[in-house]
Simulated assay, not measured.
Amino acid sequence: MLGTAGLTKRLGDFTLDDVDLTVADGEYFVILGPTGAGKTILLETLAGIYSPDAGTIALDNRDITRTDPKDRGIGMVYQDYMLFPHLTVGENIGFGLKQRKAEPARIRESVQETAALLGIGHLLHRTTGTLSGGEQQRAAIARALALRPRVLLLDEPLSALDTVTRERLRRELKAIHRTTGTTVIHITHHFEDIFALADRVAVMQDGRIVQTGTPDEVFRRPATEFVAAFTGMENVYCGVSRVRNGEATIDLGEIVVRTVTAIEGDVCVGIRPEEVILSRQPFESSAANTFSGTVAEIRQNGMFSRVVVDTGLPFVAVLTRQSVARLGLVEGEPANVTFKASAVHVFKR
C-alpha cells in the first residue's frame, strides 16, 4: 500500500540510506530506533517535507516521490502538537479542510465527527493554550484525521505525556485504528507502544532499517547484536559455535552454552532476562544450560527487580520483588542460573 525503494536523503552529516520499506493497507506499523537513527527524517520524507536524493515512494501503486505534500493523502502529527494558538480547537481540527475550500457544512460535520472519535467534542470552543498535553495531542491527531488521510504518520505522539495519560491515549489510538482502518506509521522509543499497538516493527540504526518483523520476531529473534541490545535482550555474548547433528555448543570463553541452531563459526547469542531462571539451590532439571554463580547486584525497578548473577559471565534476570524475597537472593551470596536451549537466540557476529 505504501512502499519505498532505495530511499536516500542527505542532510548535513546525516544520511537516510537506501531505505526499502513496505507497509500494508490498514497496518499499524511502528518504527523503533535510538535518537539520531533517522526516524523523523524518514517520516518527513514520506510526507513530502523533504525531497529524496535517490529512490522512490509509492502509495496505492502511484509514484508520489515528487508529488506536492498536500496532494499525497498523508497526514502527520508531531510530538509537540504544532497547534495554532490563535484558533479554537474546532478551528484547528477544521483548518486543513478550510484550506481545501470544503463546504462549511462539511467542515462542521467532519470536525464534530472527528472530535467525538477522539473524545474532545466538549472542547471545540476552547483555545489550545487552555488544554492539557493529552488534550492537545488528541486535537492534533483529530486535525490530521479530519482530512481522511490514506496514511497517518505519528512522530513520537506519546513521548511528552505522563504515564497515565500515555496509557489512556495508547488505548484510544488502538480504538481509532480499529474504527477507521487508517494505515498508521508511528515512531517511538517506548517498547510498550510496540506491544500495545504494532502489527509490525522496523528497527532503524544510523539511517538504515536493520530489521523488520512482528514485535515477537524482533524482540525474541533479533537479527544483529545492535537490535538485541537495543530491544533489551541484555544477555548478549559472542563466541564460537560448533554444530553437530543440529545441536550447537557455543564457547563463550567463560562458559559453554547449548542450543539448537545450524549457524556455525563466530556468533553472538542472546537470552532475554525474563527467560533466565534463578535459584539458591541447585536445579533438578533437564535444562541444557545450568550454571553456578554469585549474586552481583539486585536493583529495584518499579514493580520488578533486576538481578545480576556472575557465572563467569553476568546474567541478568527480571523477577518480582516477592520472588526475590521468596528465593532468598542476597548480593554476594551464591545463586544458580538456568535457561532452556530454546531461549538461546543465535545470530552471526
Rank of each mutant, 00 (worst) to 15 (best):
A223P: 03
T224Y: 09
E225Y: 02
E225T: 00
E225L: 07
F226V: 01
V227R: 09
V227W: 05
V227F: 08
V227N: 00
A228F: 07
A228Y: 07
A228R: 02
A229H: 14
F230T: 09
T231V: 14
T231K: 04
G232H: 07
E234S: 13
E234I: 14
E234W: 13
N235F: 14
N235W: 13
N235V: 15
V236F: 07
G239W: 07
G239S: 10
V240R: 09
R242M: 06
R244G: 04
E247K: 12
E247G: 05
A248H: 02
A248Q: 03
T249D: 09
I250V: 06
L252V: 00
L252P: 00
G253D: 11
E254W: 01
I255F: 00
I255Q: 02
V256F: 02
R258Q: 11
R258V: 03
T259A: 10
T261E: 14
T261A: 08
A262T: 15
A262Q: 14
I263V: 08
E264V: 12
G265H: 12
C268V: 15
V269I: 15
G270R: 05
G270I: 04
R272T: 02
R272H: 10
E275V: 01
V276T: 00
V276C: 08
V276I: 10
I277V: 15
L278W: 03
S279E: 06
S279Q: 08
S279Y: 11
R280Q: 04
R280V: 01
R280H: 10
F283M: 05
S285R: 04
A287E: 11
A288P: 02
N289V: 06
N289I: 08
N289T: 00
N289P: 06
T290K: 09
F291P: 08
F291G: 03
F291T: 07
S292W: 00
S292C: 05
G293N: 05
V295I: 13
V295R: 10
V295G: 06
A296C: 01
A296Y: 05
I298L: 12
R299G: 08
Q300D: 06
Q300G: 09
N301T: 12
G302S: 15
M303W: 15
M303L: 14
F304T: 09
F304E: 12
S305E: 10
V307R: 02
V308K: 04
V309S: 08
V309G: 09
V309L: 05
D310E: 13
D310Q: 01
T311S: 01
T311N: 03
G312S: 06
G312T: 04
P314H: 07
F315K: 01
V316W: 10
A317T: 06
A317Q: 05
A317Y: 07
L319I: 10
R321I: 06
R321A: 11
R321P: 02
Q322H: 06
Q322L: 14
Q322V: 11
Q322M: 10
Q322T: 15
S323N: 13
V324S: 02
R326F: 14
L327R: 00
L327A: 00
L327Q: 08
G328F: 12
G328R: 05
L329Y: 09
L329V: 06
G332V: 04
G332C: 09
P334G: 07
P334R: 04
A335R: 03
N336H: 14
N336A: 13
